[in-house]
Design a protein around this nucleic acid. Structure first.
Lengths: 257, 257
DNA sequence: GTGTCGATTTGACATGCGTCAAATCGCACA
DNA sequence: TGTGCGATTTGACGCATGTCAAATCGACAC
């Protein structure tokens, strides 16, 4: 759990003895006090505007692992921001195959498919106990009319989603299994950095099966390649705890030369 | 060339001798007179509103095959609608590989990547002589504030783009070469129908190389599978002229059971 | 602890698709 | 009509990754 991670780090540093290892964030904390800050909201909006956003955001109690936020076909009402934990979205193709479309970490927004025909094109499920903010779409639309920077930000989020999808398309269409897995590790690392956590040490929130599904591989191939990377001292991996040992090597495997 | 196709068909029927095979549409025709009609614009907007849209749309002269509308990295100014012909968009990955992200046929909108960071994430090039409408993004934004249905429509277009990308991700990650090719043929057929053309007879606007690139295959595999489909009497293919003979079979190959 | 069950790893083998090479086609242009 | 060259097809072969099977690990209940 990412939100717990810095608590755990503080304990290791043992300079803040009043902290404990349980997640004790008030899940109703306002946007202005949210440590994720501009990760999910536009940096440009003023304090007054943030209060307005605060008013439309719904903060539910944490979602347990395996629980769904919405299902494919559900009528579309809201978009969501991850506060803590991790979410995956997946869709069933016409032939009934499940395809994971994305993993979402704290500060990231999901659920923007579904705007097109008012029903969700994918399902969203918690990979671990997670907290999410729900932002009703009609309120967001109204507020956007008053806050141009919010509207722009929202457009940018959708557009970024498209750009991400297109990177994944390229990865699946053009890259080997080694390259796909290296790219995923680097993506998780970069997103960890974005949240001010370690670039080299983090926990994989998803199972090997999920990684395989997402990358268009089998679980056996994923396992073999992770073992190979470990043997080659590119990473260290114990269960889901990942440590990147040779970042340059990983980049070169991923094809970022 | 799709806009020429019905001219060509009329000539075959030889009941309209005054038509010729050259493209003689006035490329400056207004939105309200455009035969594509609600394919690209929201069906909900009134005539008055359409005039307003008309005023912001730029209609350039036709683009020759191989010419670019924009290049990856160009600053983002407009989105585009295909009037006639066909456009492909592609992007270069970090490792320099080209990935075709989509083919766009008359009535379809492209160029919506790039909103996120004000620069295009892909390049767009004409597959054949094509006419496109250019819609400046800032004018569109302003007009959207006055026309809620336009704003909604635009959101829907972006969201549909996401849904399309996710279908492609699933196709690339989970389906065999046979299935991918069958799915592409069916997609082109369905989009032909949307434009009131034949579901079974159409011209592939792209090369085998483009098909291979788009579907994450090699040109040899594409060629072999198209040959196989022909031998099995699922399709008839002469060069780029496609005729679907056994639609049900094609659907079952694509995995739509 | 001990048992149970799903998750992961590892190995042996099979195959779909890529690679390399050569033939053929089709269109532009002389 | 011929000539050239890129596009496409076809064949032979190899390899990356899938499939099947079995061993091992890890988390959780009791």
């Amino acid at each position: 759990m990412y939100e717990q991670q810095d608590d755990a780090m503080n304990i290791l540093a043992s300079d803040l003895p009043e902290k404990d290892t349980t997640c004790h964030h008030d899940h109703r904390v306002s946007c202005s006090n949210c440590r994720l800050g501009s990760l999910c909201l536009p940096i440009a909006v003023s304090s007054d505007d943030i209060d307005q956003i605060d008013n439309i955001v719904l903060r539910s109690r944490p979602i347990d692992k395996g629980n769904h936020l919405f299902n494919q076909g559900d009528s579309f009402k809201s978009i969501y921001a991850v506060r803590s934990g991790a979410i995956k979205t997946y869709s069933l193709s016409a032939s009934g195959k499940e395809q994971i479309n994305g993993f979402y970490l704290p500060g990231e927004i999901f659920g923007m498919d579904g705007i097109s025909d008012f029903s969700h094109a994918s399902s969203a499920v918690a990979l671990e106990r997670s907290a999410v903010c729900e932002i009703p779409y009609d309120s967001l639309g109204k507020l956007s009319n008053e806050l141009p920077s919010l509207q722009r930000h929202f457009m940018q989020l959708m557009s970024r989603e498209i750009a991400n999808d297109q990177k994944l398309i390229s990865l699946l269409g053009k890259n080997s299994a080694d390259e796909r897995i290296a790219a995923l590790i680097l993506s998780l690392s970069a997103r960890n950095v974005r949240r001010k956590f370690s670039a080299t040490d983090f926990r994989l929130p998803m199972s090997r099966t999920d990684i395989a599904n997402f990358l268009g591989l089998t679980i056996e191939t994923v396992s073999r390649i992770l073992s190979k990377f470990s043997k080659q001292n590119v990473i260290e991996l114990q269960n889901k705890e990942m440590r990147i040992i040779d970042m340059d090597r990983l980049r070169s495997i991923a094809g970022i030369d």
